[in-house]
Design a protein around this nucleic acid. Sequence first.
RNA 1: GUUUCGGUAGCUCAGUAGGAUAGAGCAAUGGCCUUCUAAGCCAUCGGUCGGGGGUUCGAAUCCCUCCCGGAAUGCCA
Length: 550
Amino acid sequence: MNIQELVLDIKDHIKNILKDLGYFDENINITLEVPKGKSNGDYSTNVAMQYARIARKSPRVIADEIVNKVKSEDHFIEKIEIAGPGFINFYIKSSFITNVIKDINILKDNFGNHDLGQGEFYNIEFVSANPTGLLHIGHARGAAAGDSLCRILSKAGYKVEKEFYVNDAGNQIKNLAASIQARYRELFDLEATMPEDGYFGKEIIETAKDIKKLHNDKFIHEDGFEFFRQYGVDSLLNELKKDLKDFGVDFDVWFSEKSLYDQDLVNKTVKYLIDNDYTYEFEGAVWLKTSEYSDEKDRVIIKTDKTFTYVTPDIAYHKNKLDRGYTKLIDILGGDHHGYIPRLKAAIEMVGGNSDTLEVELLQMVKVLQDGIEVKMSKRSGKAITIRDLVDEVGPDPIRYFFAMRSLNTHMDLDLDLAIRQTNENPVYYVQYAHARICSIFRQAVEKGFNLDTFTTEFSTLTSEKTLELVSKLSEYPNAIKVAATQRAPHKLTNYINSLASSFHSFYNDEHVITENAQNTNERLALLNATKIVLKDALSLVGVSAPEKM
RNA sequence: GUUUCGGUAGCUCAGUAGGAUAGAGCAAUGGCCUUCUAAGCCAUCGGUCGGGGGUUCGAAUCCCUCCCGGAAUGCCA
């Protein structure tokens, strides 16, 4: 029996006792949680307070009745106390708690796995930046959050596919081609005007230079628009893929918007919507009746000039995703798209899907500070802090950790000077350092002849407060995974990692691991190995490395 | 105006299917390296949880109202 099973066991036990006492109510959940302070036991429940009204007795009396029935039976429990207004606090025997060390050393990086997602198949779309420039810091947040969430969901037992929607059709791509064309002409000192909504980043100039290198002045004499379009999309998409890869983010599917047109799926979807009376014509445009599905108003899907709006191919795209058989579609979008959600959900209902299948996670904007003042990004000037700059300066780890630390829908400030500084002001080093310290101890243990191939499974000397705190922190890992996965909250995992590292550092400072006492040393090495496994696994879920030396 | 996300320590942020003295990191102050990495540990300082009402044994958390900031409110994407 492990600690999770014990918790379930206790809950079950309490439930039976409540039935015996004649209080039980289906509607009240029995919860057993880890209290904040150790002085309130290893686990605690507030059932007595919840049942006060039903039983019409004071919480403490109920607690007393419950405790009297529990007491005699469970041999894993050290003691039970009633505290405060009526909390029942359970203290678990330390010999039972240390079992988790054995479990971890056997399961290794499978420790903390769940099968929560049985039968589920999630599609998670994130970043989906237009291939019209380099990825900037806002995209980095999306990439870090999305990738971490996917890894956590996989760990929790969900089948997950990561998808990037490539907007390689439509207006922005025309602007890209026109921008490249203008930059290309500039290279020959010819008159050139950048389009009003053009892309002014220096990577566009680089692209033009590349084209000049390959084809010289060929496109001065003939129309190169189509070439510029294709070449621009291809090369910028490659840059984008490279940057994401260097950031530790891989996608399973790169879905091309253009492919929707190539397969005629956009027209088919539009025809379907029209044929099924979901549209009407008004002032020369075709409108979709999304207001019938709790959107605030109807939306144009075919403009007066007969071209589509952004949502039109996106409906076809989501229809396509539905057809691919996922049980859940998660879109991770920037907070500025929140108004877009109702129309998308409406459209999903219209094409025969269930709008609950789509779940949108919004990421609020990142405010970037440099020298204490806000750095405004501007498409017009091409001024932006790119992922590439950041990764080149400090590597992916600090940035990924930093973004993973924040809950998705919080507005956040990023102090660039601080992010780039490689000091302890950056929390990722604190965690990585814990891992490196363990590795360092192991190196010395090997020198002194300790065996690190197998670890002891008997623990009799692990009794100090710091030790047990570290052990019980380890046993919380599976729950941390579960919470992070089901609440779509990678930051709950980094909170856990941080507190695990903290427990370790505190333990490390208090107690020497390698001593003359062989048994004691072996037990501690087993504990450290378990800690190392969990640290490394947890860090891998946020895409951060676990260095052996620092 | 409406929708939406925020307002918690000097700063950056946790904590919200109501629970025990509201937490962490950084910053500040004071200690700890002849012993496994001081990117560490320990301690201190620091908060009318934006304001005001309400709901109840109990509210940062739920309800109402007001104030302040971001975003959206396109036949842009």
